[in-house]
Amino acid sequence: MKRSTLVNILFLAPCVFAFIMNIIIPFGFGLYYSMTDWNGVKTSANFVGMRNFAGLFSSPDFIYSFLITIFYTAINIVLVNAVSFALSLIVTSKFRFRNFLRAGFFIPYLIGGIVLGYIWQFILNNAIVAIGNSLSIGFLKSSLLGKPNTVIWIMSLVNTWQYSGYIMLIYVAAIQGIPASLMEAAEVDGAGYFSRTFKILVPMMANAFTISLFLTLTTSFKQFDMNFTLTNGGPATRFMDTPIKASQLLAMNIFNTATANRMAEAQAKAVVLFVALVLVALFQVAYNKKKEVEL
């Protein structure tokens, strides 16, 4: 017994060591630097308490980034999950090309966010505008990325295009894990397609919803790469009577603060992002867990 404890500790040690060095210590440093005036280079940093945090919630660009990130996350959760659930239903039906489609829907996920952002930027700024011009369709004549009111929706669409194939796979796995006898029994009892789907399939795969919602929530909240290449935060819009960037999500706001050599302030924003994300994610997982059914 004693020996196995020692062995356990030894086997765990590399992992714990890596975890402490890579996660715990940098996290502590991050918290510390968010309360200093460090600029990223100076060898000394002065402790300034909560000053960096105090200014955040009175600066229009940060409040806007915070709100627009929540809005973006909300539409993303709905869009991505609705689309990927629909896709998973298609590719688990007796449809002839289902294996081909499974691979096809998954491919966008394999394209990196940076590349994908540039490709869609070209499509939206050039290809669609050219189509709009040649067919004289008014609202397509200028880029959809140039309109402050539509840009978040466009970003969400692009994200859905990229991400729903991945979430679809999770749903497919869950659907395949449901005993076929259950569905057959329901069919024999005269349940139609929709009642079978929503009364049996959906409750049975509630754990897949928990994980999918969690994944879409966290990735949307932390969205950066596609935001950076697709819109770069633009166009500008007016918020609290101050011109700010209409599609600057929280992660990009942090990045832009950091690149302007305001490292400590950026760190404070990152701490706020962390706390917000943890709170929302905990709430979401706790809520979804309640809905899961034990088989």
Partner: peptide
């Protein structure tokens, strides 16, 4: 950061 974060959005708008 004044050019990028402060004046940039004003000129864009």
């Amino acid at each position: 950061g004044a050019g990028q974060n402060l004046f940039g959005p004003i000129f864009d708008l």
